[in-house]
Design a binder for these strands. Sequence first.
DNA 1: CATGAATGAGCATTCATTCAT
DNA 2: TATGAATGAATGCTCATTCAT
Lengths: 216, 216, 216, 216
Amino acid sequence: MAESAKKAPRRTKSRAPASRDKRERILAAAVKVFAKHGFYATRVSDIAREAGVADGTIYLYFKNKDDVLISIFDDRIRRLIEVLQREIASCDTTEERLRRIIEIQLGLLEEERDLAEVVTVNLRQSSRMLKQYATPLFMEYLGVIASVIADGQREGSVRSDVSPRLAARSMWGGLDGIAVTWALADGDPANLRTAAKQFASLYWAGLASAPAQNPR
Amino acid sequence: MAESAKKAPRRTKSRAPASRDKRERILAAAVKVFAKHGFYATRVSDIAREAGVADGTIYLYFKNKDDVLISIFDDRIRRLIEVLQREIASCDTTEERLRRIIEIQLGLLEEERDLAEVVTVNLRQSSRMLKQYATPLFMEYLGVIASVIADGQREGSVRSDVSPRLAARSMWGGLDGIAVTWALADGDPANLRTAAKQFASLYWAGLASAPAQNPR
Amino acid sequence: MAESAKKAPRRTKSRAPASRDKRERILAAAVKVFAKHGFYATRVSDIAREAGVADGTIYLYFKNKDDVLISIFDDRIRRLIEVLQREIASCDTTEERLRRIIEIQLGLLEEERDLAEVVTVNLRQSSRMLKQYATPLFMEYLGVIASVIADGQREGSVRSDVSPRLAARSMWGGLDGIAVTWALADGDPANLRTAAKQFASLYWAGLASAPAQNPR
Amino acid sequence: MAESAKKAPRRTKSRAPASRDKRERILAAAVKVFAKHGFYATRVSDIAREAGVADGTIYLYFKNKDDVLISIFDDRIRRLIEVLQREIASCDTTEERLRRIIEIQLGLLEEERDLAEVVTVNLRQSSRMLKQYATPLFMEYLGVIASVIADGQREGSVRSDVSPRLAARSMWGGLDGIAVTWALADGDPANLRTAAKQFASLYWAGLASAPAQNPR
DNA sequence: CATGAATGAGCATTCATTCAT
DNA sequence: TATGAATGAATGCTCATTCAT
């Protein structure tokens, strides 16, 4: 504290909206490095360097490394759910709603590929504790999709012989499968948009109650 | 934990049968502990204890811990592909073939839940190296499904406006999504069988070229 | 544990100087334990304990165990070379210079017997990497001696029918041979001083260009 | 023993003068690999492979890895001492005897460079136990040289103001120094022979009692 | 609040040695 | 005797976490 020569430069940002800002910066950094190297291969110091803070600082905002990952889920997925719900509300038909969800979930890959990678890849490795935290949130996300489907069943646009929950699971899984292989293989945005359209068509064809919905 | 079955022979050093048998035992043990604690949380000594061998013995059969995981993929998935191809050959229609694949992939969960967990969970965490090894094999697996779909398109039973590759991806993903949430949630075999039926219906409805295949 | 000696200076927040101290302490500890047990038999934790630091701390200052040994060579021999050159500069004749070198090299044994042991013993075991690092430095040391001899030849005090390089090698070897056997055998400082005198006489007699240099 | 398919090939030599022969082969192999990689970096299995025997076989002939190195010293140096003594006996003058010793010790490098490397390099690393065994033998070797010098002093050809023991040490050391740097640097046999001549001249000039022995 | 040097538990891997065959 | 699969103790190194400044 008495060392003069040190305080001067202060390269760690402008000090103003500190707390909130720094937490955010750490999360963003974590998303980036987790996506690149995976949770286990990422060192806390990697996150710190990427965020431009000291290692110890991370422990002022998060309980431990696990907590950083948990917080990503918490922050980001919660936000995603909000976006989803807003979009859903602005759609008129169930088909449109599902199409929108598909676009958003796959679109996430383009806009925030890192985040998608983290959510997708890291949901599974996780320690027990992490699983405990991440699962409910993930279930909530699935719940949003499931309720769109359930609503569709109620209004008659969706066949009633499938469990909304199951349909939601398989939709999420299908999208995830596309995402994983897309990331593994080409990574071309154009292909992704084509994939979104085809998947939507496929999925809605499977789900719609009416006859003849397969486009010729 | 195999306590009973193991203690009897105990360090009587039944040297003879060795090699093949022991490698197999290590792999089986690895599947078990990887499934329970995940790849990263599993120590090599855990595998060794489970397999009833010394730590060092593992290195007589595998290059390192990564190699154990890779070998699981290699051995097991290769076997799975063989089973799949045999089953496919014995089916008459594309619908039947896809239904069979769905049953097998989900059925794997019941018979070899640990293996399914390992394959499912660990395909993604993995180091670069692992990814390198696992991906081609996984692509081969997808290829089997894709070719069934392509065949279906050729014979006219499958709509031709979707890429077989994409359809395969989303099918695998859907099944995987069901598997993950099933494992995370209930884990009741009955539910799994129901899920298989519903998913098959859903998926085929989406994929079939003809009209009106949605059961009333 | 160095409790006392450490807390005092603690002034400079600028990590480097504070570090300097600890790095030095680790090197000193390493010299001590390497000398006692040899490089291979010494565990990193031995060095750490001797230095009063944690195992991990060593890796803040050195890349690995090899690097510790390399650093000893680097630091110490560089220092030795400097001393040598300063001393050489302050001598008037070649004979005096060589006598001085002999005294210094053998004298090192008394003052820093551990260091001498490490330098002497470990120059040879070493991994390839170590050899790579140690050799050039050692060659530089030999070069100092060789240039003294070459100067002697130029001014006519040293016979010109021997290669300065070879003469330097054999001088270093002779001193080293004395050192090794001295350490192995008695270890009596008095004997060492006698040895230094006799060797100087012997060596100069062999090297001098003039006749009759054997003292009666 | 009951496995038929195994005994047939019998690639492990002709079985006749087994024991002696095999021990010898192991020692020769050990010299080779110790020279190449050093004692510590050499695995017992390396020696075994080089010798064409099984790992376990080595323990039928030697107590442990250390014992192999000790045995090399014992066998080889004992032999070297014998050679030296025979050669010495066949020389007429002290000068000639020393010249012969120099030639033999340096010549060893050419003929049995590996052995020289082992003796030279490994004398020093060694565990305590090894030191215990190797030192006396080494001292015996030095004793041979020392006694030649002592004889020379008695007959008046060698100056009497140096300790024969010290002279022997420095001679061995000088030769060793030349050897080490020769191995490190060029490795050209021609240079080695030149070195032998120069060193002999240098050394004898230093040691001789008479005046004017420096060749013009 | 922020820092980053220090800590030390934890773990993969190696390899000398044993021993059933 | 000879074998080599199996053993398991031993250890270098990493990295999440702490805490004095």
